[in-house]
Design a binder for these strands. Structure first.
Lengths: 217, 217, 217, 217
DNA sequence: CATGAATGAGTCTTCATTCAT
DNA sequence: CATGAATGAAGACTCATTCAT
């Protein structure tokens, strides 16, 4: 998240007053939304959790929707930043995919409240917000696309695959995995699933084939 | 779901005669929810769209939540019924998967309003409703599991795959595909994606291998 | 209750169709109102308890209010009829008072549901209904007045007492006693209180005086 | 009731600053309830009468029921406070009774709206509210009990009287008297009845006896 | 910048009553 | 006479947002 993560981007709000207060509200929002869901997360409770007055929230955010968007811009942005870093270091496309999935599961896996918001409550919002969320996710999608291109270039990924479908295969699987983990109560370790998930993504239902060294029978 | 889908199952509600009115309300609910989302779908508008008085809605449904659940029980149930039928006819696990995906995309692909409800607005509801939705989906999940077992038995699916991950691979991908289609405005043909999606599911990012005789060319 | 108890007296309703059904509804009304109070007693439940359709209720009663009034006219009327009989047989004013109180407590004491309606739920209604209730009670008040006149004539009651106040002394005490009994859960025997209550009414707080034969000290 | 009568006692509600607004709502509630009864007293009308927005009512009161309870706690509490004061000054039990009745009639006699609420509309509420009302009245009942004990000690009240019946004699008569006054349209002066009522309570129907020196002539 | 009291639009649900059959 | 499905008016309560201090 390259600098511009703070404040509502030209909305005329949040002209970088008290950044600590801004972050306090954002953190409180994640907490309260994780607990009650977007629709039941009252501004009053977020304000109280952040230790500010109700009205103060509106000095930093345009409205409730803006809080949610900002939470996401912030957290997803952080993940994307790390993912970009990690990707740069990857020796191969496969390794890159592996590290992306590990990173995604790792980040959400240690913050159940955040995962709760992105996986469950995020979906409670109106279609127009969801579209905006799509924009926020775009850098992450781009990273996946790059990774795939690279894999094709390296000759390990099938060049016949539809790009859009590939993206949905990867993100849909990751998403469903995190959702199931959250809804199950986050009882197991999410990050430890990453290798098996990547294997499934790489080889599909049929599994790795014989000519990848040897076939099984 | 076989025939007795009408009415709220022992809730003492919805035992009224006029099945056409029951269906009218259900259809109206899908319409209004597709348009405005669950939270903004007012009973008054559903009633008006169904051509009945507000109070009449409560002769057939316990409350707003019950309408949503019923919509899903009805529609998902229908899909599951068809999927069960189709599965019985499939000559192989692969064919079964192919027909399941085709069916799922086909059913939702011709009713954008319904897809809108299941993919977008469905997620606006509280955790307890979501849990109930999980129950409704269970038969579909079971079908996927059976299909996978069969494939393993047939020697075409990898026995090393984690079952849970497999289920998430398949459903996550399908779900993400439908969601993307809905959010894009349903501008393209959803059903026509099914073969490519199935290929991605079967072979993953690496694609089908040489020893699978021929593929795509 | 001299004959005219059945039906709404010239309201154009209940032209003596099926008297058994009329009574069934009346009984059901007492039951349901005792249980839930006037405001929560739904016509639908009364109808079901009476074994008739909702609409049928309106063939016998003008509206919900009319049912309540009729219940009272009926039951209070019955009590008044018996009270009139009893009064005629009384050898003295004191004996008459004693029998009136005993009768009142006795009748309500064996029908907690009825007492519940008259003492608790009756009071939930609007002032205009309460006024009508006053009319129904009038014959009973008259009986009390007669009794008092007689007592004055017999030289046992004080001629200086304000008639209205006397009436309120008697009825207020009876009413409060029954109310307390009902609200306590009707755990003790109401009728057995009548003699003590009458003593209190006759002699007040100071109790019977020496010149009434002998003082106890 | 001594000063701290403001606010809903630890309900977390009504801790707002503006006591004048709290009182305005309370006064408005008495007015509207007196006019229309508890059940027909709409929050919107109370709010308008108090000159505040609908929502503001809920800053000071938990709900409609809480308003009613608060009205009573407030007004009955005030009467009880005064009654306690008055009782302390009374030279004898009889004088105490006389002042209690005079006070009760006097307070309600100058506020027909309040009497309307306590005597008529109060009784429209559910049993659980009535029980709470019982608690509010308890101090008043206790005062009556004390008064009676004292009278017995002074040798003017009969020690043979059942305490419970005595309480019902006194309160029932007072209650009935106020109710009748309210339902009559409050056309006469209520307070002026107090002496005659007390006489009735003291001596009952038989009136004061010869050995009570002189009475009335 | 911060506060938090005040606002008031928005909505599900109930239930007495009607009327077509 | 009887039915009971249908009606639709009515009302308490929530909570995002504002603005005077």
């Amino acid at each position: 998240m390259n600098g511009c993560s703070f404040s509502g981007e030209g909305r005329g709000i949040g002209t970088r007053r008290d950044e600590s207060k801004y972050n306090a509200i954002l953190d409180a929002a994640v907490l309260v939304m994780a607990e009650s869901g977007y629709h039941h997360a009252q501004i009053a409770r977020i304000a109280k959790a952040a230790g500010v007055a109700d009205g103060t929230v509106y000095l930093y955010f345009k409205n409730k929707e803006d809080i949610l968007i900002s939470v996401l811009r912030h957290t997803i942005g952080e993940i994307v930043d790390k993912a970009t870093e990690t990707s740069a270091k990857a020796a191969s496309a496969e390794e890159q995919l592996r590290s992306l999935v590990r990173l995604y599961f790792g980040e959400l896996g240690v913050r159940r409240d955040l995962a709760m918001v992105t996986q469950v409550h995020l979906r409670q919002v109106d279609a127009n917000i969801r579209r905006e969320i799509g924009d926020i996710m775009k850098p992450f999608y781009n990273l996946l696309d790059e990774m795939f291109e690279r894999g094709v270039g390296e000759g390990v990924f099938s060049p016949n695959l539809n790009r859009r479908i590939t993206r949905r295969l990867i993100f849909g699987t990751m998403d469903e995995t995190v959702s199931a983990w959250v809804l199950s109560g986050a009882k197991y370790d999410l990050a430890s699933l990453s290798n098996d998930v990547v294997d499934a993504l790489l080889y599909g239902l049929t599994g790795p084939k014989a000519n990848d060294t040897e076939q099984k029978g």
